[in-house]
Design a protein around this nucleic acid. Structure first.
Lengths: 348, 348
DNA sequence: CTGAAAGCGCTTACAG
DNA sequence: CTGAAAGCGCTTACAG
């Protein structure tokens, strides 16, 4: 048929065909209009059941996969949820991400992970870049960000849930717990154990660490035990090696210390190992407590007393809240306090 | 002007205006055609320098951010690079990701992270979903995947770099090292230390772990020391707690063991702590070696002998190779063996 | 070096 | 319940 003779009546083709299976191809195969395919596949209910089935069959047979770019452009929406965390090298945030992803994926959303490295400027750049993609939702860590970032989020109109902390600000959606209270509670546990010279050793010094410090201070002031010289705040990022070296510093300069609250478990683990190397008996001479209940804390010698933070629960609850917001369902209350749990082990 | 009287000659507006600053707005502001703006902003060299400057100024002033969806739809390309890793809960993969991201970001690419959980089916679904987004490039972990996944990648035509292992297959791009050789080398180190009853303790049992096992076997067979009863392979995922319990099992059932090669440092760390609890002297009674040189291994008591795997280097080199491939530059050789390094510490 | 037209593959109004 | 037309915001050919 028609070999050798190009159809001379054809207009010049300016084809940019991509080889992709399109909605139109499915429509042709199913014998309906493209629009009906679109509606059937998206599950709009205004399509009759038998047509839906016919369309589904045609789509499956052709191996049709909708083009996300075309969809986003036409609808001004996407199925992406952006999650911004400070670091991936802290297991805390990985747990948060995995939990959120496990909840969002079955609902048809894809998670885009952004890492801010605790840098407000980097966070702002990430937000600007990601918001251009018209995400359906946004999950961010904490409330501490630049005014520019705050305005970007507000102006975008993208629903946003905040992780890890609490707030009483109206109209803000969050899932977390009071870092101040948790810091207070673990300190109170040490006081209740009869400790009097309780040090606070911290690194990273991000907003949540400083909130824990605040809880520590309040508790010791209430008990009449506060001594500013027992605070060791180090700006470097947290690690076992740093915990060990800070613990050694502490014992050298404040030999009368009888307890240490490390702001994070990796520091505390390093501290416990340093104690073991130095022959400092824990908890007899010095009690040790950490924060977050990370992997390995239960394996330490002695096992580490710490604050268990329910990050899986936070990730799931935040994702669920975001799903409601994205569906424009009413969300009440706007904040969920999931609490925390003091885990007493051998180190205190 | 013209108040109160709607212009009756107007066609009915079917506006779907989005409020977004568009290329056309920039063009109008700069007094050029949209196409020129497009070219100027993308750095095509066929635009005169002064026009480029004029366009840049207009774009900056209006706060223009290109629409990624429109761009992807029109160009059939995106600035996304998809990276597929098995887990985020293993610091190894986090290091890989961070390194790749640090290299790709300055080049203008955005990293989309997919987590396969070591499941070929899940990997296939992720690939199908992500390839619909027309990523500019793809980075995957290892070579072990379903035939369907392999074909999806090949059919997509998207440049792809493989992480962590080596291959001699032609046309395949990779950055890694020989897991077999590394497993052989650390075992040989233990043999050279005079050990004769060397156990291999593994979890997760992913392809790379099995390759390390292969290296272990080869080495011991060459030395005439191989004993299948000294292999402890556990399918569960790797953790310090599991390492501790496997170490205890091993000492109970094979009391004559004089060295243990753990397939991963988290297991080895757990093993070392178990030895400490049991009062088993390391390395006097039992030498211990790990794999990967994870955080904390240098803090153990005694510090852990292990294989340092250069994941930052792998992430950077893979990203650079991918950048070349995406620019259609020739890449030769197609594979880069970055090697590994035996780190001898106190545990052996 | 610059531009007018067409097209990427969808969905949104608007009609019937 | 179904469809023809228009549009989302860019870039790709094709011209000059």
């Amino acid at each position: 048929m028609n070999q050798g003779k190009p159809e001379s009546t054809d207009k010049p083709r300016r084809s940019r065909a991509t080889g992709r299976v399109t909605l139109d191809a499915v429509a042709a195969a199913a014998g309906v209009s493209p629009i009906t395919v679109s509606r059937a596949l998206r599950g709009e209910r205004s399509v009759s059941a038998d047509l839906v089935e016919r369309v589904r069959a045609a789509a499956d047979q052709l191996g049709y996969v909708p083009d996300p770019a075309a969809r986003a452009l036409a609808s001004q929406r996407s199925a992406n949820v952006v999650v911004l965390v400070p670091l991936l090298s802290n297991a805390l945030f990985v747990d948060l991400l995995e939990a959120a992803q496990r909840t969002l994926q079955p609902a048809g959303y894809q998670t885009l992970i952004g890492v801010t490295h605790y840098d407000p400027v980097e966070e702002g750049q990430l937000l600007q870049g990601y918001l251009a993609h018209r995400p359906a939702g946004l999950i961010v860590t904490g409330f501490d960000r630049s005014e520019a970032s705050r305005q970007l989020i507000a102006a975008s109109g993208v629903p946003c849930v905040h992780l890890m902390e609490t707030t009483s600000a109206p109209g803000v959606h969050w899932v977390g717990f009071s870092q101040v209270d948790a810091g207070h509670a673990i300190t109170a546990h040490l006081v209740a154990r009869g400790r009097r010279r309780i040090a606070f050793v911290a690194a990273q010094l991000d907003p949540r660490v400083l909130q824990r410090a605040e809880g520590y201070r309040r508790c010791l002031r209430e008990a009449g035990l506060y001594d500013a010289r027992l605070e060791l705040l180090h700006p470097e990022s947290s690690s076992m090696a740093l915990g060990a070296s800070l613990f050694e510093d502490l014992l050298r300069t404040r030999p009368d210390v009888d307890a240490v609250f490390f702001c994070n478990d990796d520091l505390a683990q390093g501290g416990l190992l340093a104690a073991l190397r130095l022959g400092v008996p824990v908890p007899e001479q010095v009690a040790v407590a950490g924060f977050n209940d990370l992997a390995g804390s239960d394996q330490m010698i002695p096992p580490l007393t710490t604050v268990h933070t329910p990050r899986a629960e936070i990730g799931v609850a935040a994702a669920r809240m975001l799903l409601s917001l994205m569906r424009k369902e009413p969300v009440s209350p706007a904040g969920v306090d999931v609490g925390y749990r003091i885990v007493v082990r051998g180190s205190s």
